[in-house]
Computed example of a mutant assay.
Amino acid sequence: MASKAASEAPAGGAAGAPDPRLPGETAADRAPERYPVAEPGGKYLAPGVAGAAKILVVGPLGVGKTTLIGTVSEIRPLSTEALMTRAGARVDTRGGRTKTTTTVALDFGRITLDGDLVLYLFGTPGQQRFLPAWRDLAKGALGALALVDTRDPAASFDALGNLEDLDLPFAVAVNAFPGSPVHSEDDLRVALDLLPSTPLVSCDARDARSSVLALIALVRHLVHAATESS
């Protein structure tokens, strides 16, 4: 379903062109087969692209936002991960003991669906204290994918409440962590206080196919909502 831009060239660019790699970055780091770099003068998007949409990926700390964007992005994703400080660790208690970094500004990636629709994915910081930055990122967004961890569904209440306050359409994706409790859809809808019209799907943020399907569920919801309001 997702397709890479046909006109993008491998890292290193055309003959005689400047090396597009970042300072200190090696060809192996760039992984050109995964994250192509546009050839100088070339197009970043495939010729058949007909539209684009800004989409937020939201959820609490450690729910898998950075992982999902990195999994589906057809370009090298931008991530603003920073080491968690001792002061932050006292209040950022989610994510398990192995969680040593956190998004402090945004994650960014891009995916093309069906060759003609580009989604620009903006991952928000998970902590509520970053709400001012969160709201700035929401400007111009058409919708959001909200990730939920069934080991702690209540941790998602802030993110879902923010989306409702902004009147931003969203779909909910339950990220399948190893050992996560399994609940029925009805129970999850009650626990998360979701409207019947809000899509609720399962995904594995590490798996490209299931993550793309979650995004497709959101796009279908946005199309239906736009059709209903027109």
Rank of each mutant, 00 (worst) to 15 (best):
E25Y: 13
G70S: 08
L106N: 08
V172S: 09
A173I: 06
K43N: 03
L195V: 03
F122W: 10
G59F: 12
S79R: 06
S79K: 08
P132A: 14
V104M: 05
T66F: 14
E228N: 10
P60M: 00
G109A: 11
A226Q: 13
L192G: 00
V91F: 07
G140Y: 13
T102P: 05
P125K: 00
G48D: 01
L56V: 08
A9M: 10
G96N: 07
A138H: 04
G62D: 01
V58Y: 09
G51F: 02
A208I: 12
W134L: 08
D187M: 05
L160V: 08
T26H: 15
D187R: 10
R76P: 01
V118T: 11
E74N: 13
I111E: 01
V219T: 14
R220K: 15
A144V: 05
D136K: 03
I69M: 06
G179T: 00
Y44W: 15
T71Y: 08
R189N: 04
C203E: 03
F177K: 12
S230R: 14
G24W: 12
I55T: 10
T100K: 15
D158S: 14
F122K: 03
V63Y: 09
T102S: 08
L137F: 07
L218G: 02
T227P: 04
E185L: 05
P196L: 12
L188P: 08
S3G: 04
A9E: 07
V223D: 13
F157D: 07
L78H: 10
S197H: 14
A38G: 11
I216Y: 03
S211Y: 12
P125S: 01
A141S: 12
T67C: 02
L68H: 15
R97A: 04
H221C: 08
D114Y: 12
L106T: 08
A176F: 01
G41M: 07
S156F: 07
A11L: 06
Q128H: 06
R94T: 06
D193L: 03
V104G: 01
L145Y: 00
R206T: 14
T85F: 04
G13N: 10
V72W: 15
R135V: 15
H224M: 14
G140K: 15
F108I: 03
A17M: 00
L83R: 12
E228F: 02
A217Y: 04
L121S: 11
V172I: 03
A46G: 08
G48A: 06
F177V: 02
P169I: 09
S156R: 03
I111D: 00
P10S: 06
L222Y: 11
P181C: 06
F177N: 02
A217H: 06
S3L: 12
G51C: 01
S180P: 00
L131A: 15
E228R: 13
T101D: 03
D136I: 14
L56F: 00
L22T: 07
R151N: 01
V91Y: 03
L83I: 01
R76A: 09
T150G: 02
